[in-house]
Amino acid sequence: MATDEIGLVVRDLTVAYSGVPAVRGIDLDVPAGHAIGLIGPNGAGKSSALLAIMGAVPHGGSVQVNGEAVDGLAPERVVRRGVSLVPEGRHVFAGLSVKDNLRLGAVGRRSSDGVAETLDYVVTLFPILAEFRDRQAGLLSGGQQQQLAIGRALMADPDILMLDEPSLGLSPTAVDSVFDALATIREAGKAVLVVEQRAEFTVAFCERTHVLHDGVITMTLKPEDATNVQVLTEAYFG
């Protein structure tokens, strides 16, 4: 089902590692201006799904970005189609400065126009990055590194921003500021796909949250389910 609209469309995505299936046929729709969540226990296949969309691991099924198939493209090509991933564990380039990390993020842009505007946008979103622009990225706190990782991904000017466990290892206030930024990014019209362990938080934030178990989507939750303890428990253990 092709669509010309901005956003991500995934159909029947499968991933296997040396024959062992990790993702077994999932569908995702992430339209512009929406945030879609993907939750589930460890090993459910969440990260594999994101890496497959990026082209970092081989996959079956189809992935469409803004109406065009990106299957079989290398990660650096997928970035140029408008998808950026904030990887699990942040993985900023620790030996380089904040400024250089952001410069590297811009390498994946489709067009070299407007880098300055994007940079302005990023430092408005995360003022700390302007303040520490010359500091080595490895010396930042966890929350600051997460902001840098998101900023680096935004420098590629993506239509679709994917985040793999952005709250991992962060203090509650840092988590809040990350999700505040995500709300702004969503309002700016980007499509956001966020993989998380924190179910309650994610369900409340996203328009739709899919629960992934053993590589398949077992349930889809709406924001109002966030307060329903029974549904959430069922989502995790059911």
Binding site: M54, A56, A74, P75, E76, V79, R80, S84, L85, P87, H91, F93, A94, G95, L96, L104, G105, V107, G108, R109, R152, A153, A156
Partner: peptide
Amino acid sequence: ADFRIARLVGIP
């Protein structure tokens, strides 16, 4: 520093 991450960031 990290070839895999560099490609995910968009470095060819």
